[in-house]
C-alpha cells in the first residue's frame, strides 16, 4: 500500500499572521509549521499503511521550507517531495492543485489523503481539484477509512450522521479534523526524520511551464482585503424564569442542537 499525504506548511497560527498589502496574500517568509489539519491525514495514513505500506508526503512551500515536513516525517512518514520555486509565488488553488498533482503522480500511489481544507487559506477546493486533474475518484469529509483489497470503505461525515461509501483504489480521500488522534513525534522519531529523504523539485522538474503557475497562471485575483469586523457583543440573557428556553432557542437558531 503506497499512500501519499498532501501536507501544507503554514505560518504558526499561534503567532499573529500578517497580510502583504501589495500582493494581498499571507506573508509566508516566516517559520512555517505543519498545518494541524494535515496531522490527521498523516496519522490516518500511518495507521492504514501499518508495517507493510509506505507513507510519503507531498508539499508546496516557498524558500525550501521543510520544518512542517520534518514534523510529519518524525511522526513516521518515510519520505517527502517538496515543490519549492520562486515561480510559484501567487499561485491560486487550482495552480496549487496542478503542482501537487504533478508531484503526486511521480509515485503512482494507491491512495492520496488530504485535509478537507487548510488552516490558513480555507479554500477547501484543492483536494478535489487534484483528484479531477489526476482523474481519480474522490471522497470528501472522511471520518473513517478502511481498506479492503482494492477498495476504500469510507464513512463520510454529513450534517446528520455519516454516509458509508465505497470507492475503488487508487483514489483521493479528504479527511476531517479529529478523525484520529495524531501521534506526537517521539524523540527518536525526530532524530530519525533528519535522515529521511526530502526531494526538492522545481516547477520545471515536474514538467510544468513556469508561465502557467504563480501570478502568471493564477485564474483568480484578490482585488481587496479588509480587516475582519470586530466581534460584536454577545447577547446577555437575564433570567426571568425562562432563560433556559431562550438559550435553547438561541442555540437552535445557530443549528448547533
Amino acid at each position: 500500500m503506497n499512500i501519499v499525504v498532501c501536507v501544507k506548511q503554514i505560518p504558526d497560527p499561534a503567532d499573529p499572521g500578517a497580510l502583504d498589502p501589495e500582493t494581498k496574500t499571507l506573508k509566508r517568509d516566516v517559520k512555517l509549521i505543519l498545518d494541524e489539519s494535515d496531522s490527521y491525514g498523516v496519522e490516518m495514513a500511518l495507521q492504514l499503511a501499518g508495517d507493510e505500506g509506505t507513507v510519503s508526503l507531498v508539499s508546496m512551500a516557498p524558500n525550501s521550507e521543510v520544518g512542517g515536513l520534518r514534523t510529519a516525517l518524525a511522526m513516521g512518514a518515510e519520505s517527502a517531495v517538496l515543490v519549492s520555486d520562486d515561480a510559484l509565488k501567487g499561485s491560486d488553488a487550482l495552480t496549487t492543485a496542478k503542482v501537487l498533482a504533478a508531484a503526486i503522480a511521480k509515485s503512482s500511489p494507491d491512495l492520496v489523503i488530504a485535509a478537507t481544507e487548510s488552516s490558513d487559506g480555507y479554500t477547501g477546493t484543492v483536494p478535489e481539484q487534484i483528484a479531477a486533474l489526476m482523474d481519480l475518484p474522490s471522497v470528501t469529509f472522511a471520518k473513517e477509512i478502511a481498506l479492503d483489497g482494492g477498495t476504500a470503505k469510507v464513512k463520510r461525515q454529513t450534517e446528520s450522521g455519516y454516509d458509508s461509501v465505497e470507492c475503488p483504489l487508487p483514489c483521493l480521500v479528504s479527511v476531517t479534523a479529529g478523525v484520529v488522534e495524531p501521534r506526537y513525534p517521539s524523540f527518536k522519531g525526530i532524530m530519525a526524520a533528519k535522515a529521511k529523504p526530502v526531494e526538492e523539485v522545481t516547477v520545471a522538474d515536474l514538467g510544468l511551464d513556469a508561465g502557467s503557475v504563480g501570478w502568471a497562471g493564477a485564474g483568480q485575483e484578490i482585488v481587496s482585503i479588509e480587516d475582519a469586523p470586530a466581534r460584536e457583543a454577545g447577547e446577555v440573557i437575564e433570567d426571568e424564569g425562562d432563560a433556559h428556553e431562550r438559550i435553547v432557542a438561541f442555540l437552535d437558531e445557530l443549528k448547533v442542537l
Partner: peptide, 14 residues
C-alpha cells in the same frame, strides 16, 4: 534545529 524540534515536540505533549 534539534533543540527547536525538542521544544516543539515536548510543548505538544505538555
Amino acid at each position: 534545529p534539534d533543540h527547536e524540534a525538542i521544544v516543539e515536540a515536548v510543548d505538544a505533549v505538555c
